[in-house]
């Protein structure tokens, strides 16, 4: 009996060590996420977008480096990805929401799963981006849009609501293809409806006042800088 438990102790201490290493990397990911988030948040204050994006991409490089470290750690535990998955799940959902939002700011398009993996340096090894984490991240991203359009309109960018609305509507339609269980992801997805509603309201507000362009004429007059030209 003793011998077996001795062995277990070693094994468990080893996996405890793995966990400790993970914990330390995840703490750094969390800190980087906070920096990235803080940096992205300045889009609400209408700072020039290009500067924001550049700085943000710098932070993403940092995060990517950390995920590569994570993958490295996990390499020694083949087949145990999901054993430790809970330890970085929440941070991964956050980082997905941030890079997906950034990607939309840059391209106006959805960050695909494969693209997200690439941005985080994942996917080649056993260490991938869990699909449910990716989807949850998208829901979190959606939560940012209502605030974004409100602040964009306040800053005089009346074209933004229409663009966001188109994007969110498509995303929502795509999400509805999924059969979800009664779990965390479903609850988060339920929240997306309210984001959509809020963006519609803002769109309605600018539309009814004749402020919104109809989407055909790009480049109409706007005074608040470079944010509008991007998406």
């Amino acid at each position: 009996m003793e011998k077996q438990f001795e062995e277990f102790k070693l094994q468990l201490e080893e996996s405890g060590g793995v966990r400790e290493k993970i914990r330390s990397v995840v703490t750094e990911i969390e800190a980087s996420n906070r920096m990235l988030s803080s940096c992205l948040l300045s889009v609400h204050q209408s700072l020039p977008l290009s500067g924001v994006l550049e700085k943000a991409n710098g932070h993403i490089e940092t995060v990517k480096g950390l995920y590569v470290q994570l993958a490295e750690i996990l390499k020694d535990c083949p087949g145990e990805f999901y054993r430790y998955h809970g330890d970085w799940r929440s941070e991964t959902q956050t980082v997905v929401s941030l890079i997906a939002f950034l990607h939309w700011l840059e391209t106006g398009a959805l960050l695909m799963h494969a693209e997200a993996e690439k941005k985080l340096g994942l996917g080649s090894s056993d260490f991938g981006l869990d699909i449910e984490d990716y989807l949850t991240g998208l829901c979190f991203m959606s939560n940012e849009f209502p605030r974004y359009v409100v602040n964009r309109v306040t800053a005089g960018d009346y074209d933004c609501p229409r663009k966001v609305l188109t994007f969110l509507t498509d995303l929502h339609t795509a999400f509805r293809m999924l059969n979800l269980r009664n779990d965390f992801l479903r609850k988060k997805f339920d929240g997306m409806k309210y984001d959509l509603r809020r963006v519609e309201e803002v769109y309605y507000d600018v539309k009814i006042r004749g402020l919104a362009s109809d989407g055909s004429a790009q480049g109409q007059a706007n005074a608040t800088g470079d944010q509008l030209t991007l998406p």
Binding site: R162, E200, D214
Partner: peptide, 8 residues
């Protein structure tokens, strides 16, 4: 009628 995304 302005509600909804139909018009664009």
């Amino acid at each position: 009628s302005f509600f909804g995304v139909s018009d664009f």
